[in-house]
């Protein structure tokens, strides 16, 4: 059994990793009784968490197949990633074979973001560059979305997927969002409203959300990632930006090792 632990910045990233894991037959684990005992310590047992009735229980999302077992934790921001990894690795009785970290580079230099996280991780040998996976134990890699090179976020990748899977819808969404001016006070009533939209990735995020809203009206983008063709469409899966992420996830997961073990047995 190959086990891997992914820590990502937000819930959208969780769904992207989950979709790409599904390409290897991994399915979401719904019931505690079906969960690999290896991960049991990561499941909170009390509610409300920290007395907060509104807060989501910080349980990882689990995926499993016959040969793989994966937990994905949403850390809620780059500043929390290292401490989440350290707490989890201490809580578990043994370390998983793979550790993958996904973050974005919306408002910072890619290399600097990568170095910040790598230097804080409790593990050694996190690969030589963003997106590379070290060959130590565990195998560790830190991926900076969208492509380990350009500044941006997950939505940059999703929009490229939409060009293949939903070109007409994407064109409409862009036609609506692109002309909007973040400084137009007749649209945005205050600084808080214009805040996220005025960020570098603001328009790209809004465009991806528009596409998702048509596909799954009233639902969040993460539901659309699960259900729609963003990362199912054959041409989307063959995009360089997606193939690069798939290679990273496969390396952390140890897909080659598992395949070798299967073919030799």
């Amino acid at each position: 059994m190959e086990r891997a632990y992914f820590v990502v910045e937000g819930p959208h990233d969780v769904e992207v990793v989950g979709r790409l894991l599904a390409l290897h037959g991994l399915e979401r684990v719904k019931w505690l009784a079906d969960l690999d005992k290896f991960w049991t310590r990561l499941v909170p047992r009390t509610f409300p968490h920290q007395g907060d009735l509104m807060r989501r229980i910080p349980v990882p999302v689990f995926f499993a197949s016959e040969g793989f077992s994966v937990a994905i934790h949403s850390a809620g921001g780059i500043g929390n990633i290292a401490s989440v990894v350290e707490a989890t690795f201490t809580a578990l009785d043994e370390e998983p074979q793979g550790l993958g970290v996904l973050l974005d580079a919306d408002d910072d230099d890619v290399k600097r973001r990568w170095e910040t996280v790598v230097s804080a991780l409790p593990t050694k040998d996190a690969g030589s560059a963003p997106g590379a996976v070290g060959q130590g134990t565990p195998r560790v890699g830190v991926y900076v979305l969208p492509d380990n090179d350009t500044a941006g976020t997950l939505e940059y990748l999703l929009v490229q997927c939409a060009e293949k899977a939903y070109p007409k819808l994407l064109k409409s969404a862009k036609a609506w969002i692109d002309p909007l001016d973040p400084n137009d006070e007749s649209i945005f009533k205050n600084a808080k409203e214009r805040g996220d939209f005025s960020k570098p990735a603001g328009k790209t995020k809004a465009i991806a959300s528009c596409v998702a809203s048509v596909l799954r009206p009233g639902k969040s983008i993460q539901v659309s990632i699960q259900d729609n063709q963003w990362l199912r469409h054959p041409e989307a899966l063959e995009l360089d930006v997606v193939k690069q992420l798939r290679r990273f996830i496969d390396a952390v997961l140890g897909v080659d090792r598992a395949t070798e073990a299967q073919s030799s047995s």
Binding site: T40, R41, L42, V43, P44, R45, T46, H49, Q50, I57, P58, V59, H73, N80, S83, V84, E86, A87, T88, T90, A91, D93
Partner: peptide, 25 residues
Amino acid sequence: IRESRARRFSGELLRVSRAELGQEV
């Protein structure tokens, strides 16, 4: 303590594990 091995949680790490993540320690 498990099988003569000790996993150490500093107070700070324990706070992340318990208060932030609700993990079983």
